[in-house]
Amino acid sequence: MTCLPVTTQKKLGLAIDLDTCVGCQACVTACKGWNDQGYGAPLSDQSPYGAEPSGTFLNRVHSYAVQPIDGLAQTINFPRSCLHCEDAPCVPVCPTGASYKRAEDGIVLVNEDACIGCGLCAWACPYGAREMDAAAGVMKKCTLCVDRIYNENLPEEDREPACVRGCPTGARHFGDFADPDSKVSRLSAERGGYALMPDLGTKPVNRYLPPRKKDQRSEASVLAPLLDIRASGFAGWLDRVLGKI
């Protein structure tokens, strides 16, 4: 049944650091690369070298410009993927039972063999986390790399989601949010991690760590004192005369 579990033993998810993310799209590529093989239908592309390329991705990185009331504008890169919500709206709408949330670790998954590709779960998700694969006709979403994190054939350091493993700046962290002492829980508490659109009642597990406050310099440039050159001698006389005309 696609009824949601009341509680889950673990709440596995990601903490995404918007301060450190440089928008390099390595997580997008790592995710696509890993999910092209192994778990479920591969993430397909349509006309990848044609005039209108299109494809299925489970992770997208947006770039936003934020203009504070005082101070300079900031560029903030914003990765967007499944938040593995506790009250996931995508699960109960599924008519076939293909969409489910695991009671043991809270991962939201799709049983592709039962998916009819009606798209209702993607409609129900406010975050755009689900994309229908145009080749397979089934719904694809972030699996939190369920085929990596428990995979004992991989070296221990690789047992985390491909996007986390591939991030060159360490902006993505994986762990259990149900454990208050886990790395991600502590990081989120320290940095004021927040959930996306909490008023929709979805109770996302993933947390976003806000950009740190930027320094405000009192002067425009460290070179400013050097710009205040007072001419002396003949140049000084010329400067004064010309200034009076």
Binding site: H62, S63, Y64, A65, Q67, P68, I76
Partner: peptide, 8 residues
């Protein structure tokens, strides 16, 4: 933080 617009 401030007013948000799409940069890219």
């Amino acid at each position: 933080i401030g007013e948000v617009t799409v940069f890219e």
